[in-house]
Amino acid sequence: MMNNKLFSVIAVSTGIAISGIGLNSESAKAQEQVQFVCAQSFDQQTNQKLPTTFAWTSRGKIAVVRWETNAFKNFSPQTRCQKVSPRFQEAYDNGGINFLTNGRINQQPVICIARESGGECDTLLMTLRPDDNPITVLTQLQEVLNGRQVGAVRHSSNVPQLYYQVDFENFLRTAPVESK
């Protein structure tokens, strides 16, 4: 009798805990430890290793951006990867990666996170080259994070500012995981 009562309490508690997971995305996010890191990955398109910004999740490592351009004077792809990966972490830790936008900081085109649609750049993700089209880079990143493009963004002006809402948590749940 005592064992049945204990089992019932555990079953009810488990049911409550499981039903609460779906209702509270903040709790689910808090449970999922996501770490953004810069590491080398093998790129099958170019048949070489490239510095890559990865999101490490409980599912494994997910490539977000592969850094391949050498067009920045003072920043190699490895240096860019090392500088940008912590910015993804900062954005994620400060409320999530929900609204991607483009803008200008110090007269340079940038991709950043806004807290709301129409909001200002809150967290800088990456600075672009003056000849990069921020809309193209922003659209590629949005397509990857919304699961409509397979693989990472390849980062190889008077441009209107756009805002893309992304479901980053869904990206973390569904994006392909890379093997070693």
Results as ranks from 00 to 15, higher is better:
Asn3Glu: 15
Lys5Val: 13
Leu6Val: 15
Ser8Arg: 15
Val9Asp: 12
Ile10Met: 12
Ile10Glu: 11
Ile10Gln: 10
Ala11Lys: 03
Val12Thr: 13
Val12Asn: 06
Val12Pro: 02
Ser13Gln: 06
Ser13Asp: 06
Ser13Arg: 04
Thr14Leu: 15
Ala17Trp: 14
Ile18Gly: 00
Ile18Leu: 10
Ser19Pro: 00
Ile21Asp: 04
Gly22Cys: 04
Asn24Gly: 10
Ser25Cys: 07
Ser25Leu: 12
Ser25Glu: 13
Ala28Val: 14
Ala28Ser: 13
Gln31Lys: 12
Glu32Ser: 06
Gln35Leu: 15
Gln35His: 11
Phe36Cys: 01
Val37Trp: 04
Ala39Lys: 10
Phe42Ala: 02
Asp43Leu: 00
Asp43Tyr: 05
Gln44Thr: 06
Gln44Cys: 01
Gln45Tyr: 09
Gln45Lys: 08
Asn47Ser: 09
Asn47Leu: 04
Asn47Phe: 03
Gln48Glu: 11
Lys49Asn: 15
Pro51Asp: 03
Pro51Ser: 09
Thr53Gln: 06
Thr53Gly: 08
Phe54Ser: 00
Ala55Asp: 07
Lys61Tyr: 00
Lys61Asn: 05
Ile62Glu: 00
Ala63Trp: 00
Val65Leu: 10
Val65Phe: 06
Arg66Asp: 06
Arg66Gly: 01
Glu68Ser: 15
Thr69Val: 08
Asn70Val: 11
Asn70Ile: 10
Ala71Met: 10
Ala71Glu: 10
Lys73Tyr: 06
Asn74Glu: 14
Gln78Lys: 13
Thr79Arg: 15
Thr79Ile: 15
Arg80Asn: 11
Cys81Thr: 09
Cys81Phe: 10
Gln82Arg: 13
Val84Pro: 03
Pro86Glu: 14
Arg87Pro: 05
Arg87Asn: 15
Phe88Ser: 08
Gln89Phe: 08
Asn94Val: 03
Gly95Ser: 07
Gly95Val: 05
Gly96Asn: 05
Phe99Ala: 05
Leu100Ala: 07
Asn102Ala: 07
Gly103Asn: 03
Arg104Ser: 14
Asn106Ile: 09
Pro109Val: 01
Pro109Glu: 02
Val110Leu: 11
Ile111His: 01
Ile113His: 07
Ile113Met: 12
Arg115Leu: 13
Arg115His: 11
Glu116Ile: 02
Gly119Ser: 13
Gly119Leu: 07
Asp122Trp: 06
Leu128Arg: 05
Arg129Gly: 04
Pro130Phe: 09
Asp132Gly: 04
Pro134Trp: 03
Leu138His: 01
Leu138Ala: 04
Leu141Gln: 00
Leu141Asp: 01
Glu143Val: 02
Leu145Pro: 00
Asn146Trp: 04
Gly147Ala: 02
Gln149Pro: 04
Gln149Ser: 12
Ala152Phe: 01
Ala152Thr: 03
Val153Phe: 02
Val153Thr: 14
Arg154Tyr: 09
Pro160Asn: 09
Gln161Met: 10
Leu162Cys: 02
Tyr163His: 10
Tyr164Ile: 04
Gln165His: 09
Phe168Leu: 00
Glu169Lys: 09
Asn170Pro: 00
Asn170Phe: 04
Asn170Met: 08
Leu172Ser: 00
Leu172Gly: 02
Arg173Asn: 12
Arg173Glu: 12
Thr174Cys: 07
Pro176Ile: 02
Val177Leu: 02
Glu178Lys: 06
Ser179Trp: 00
Ser179Tyr: 08
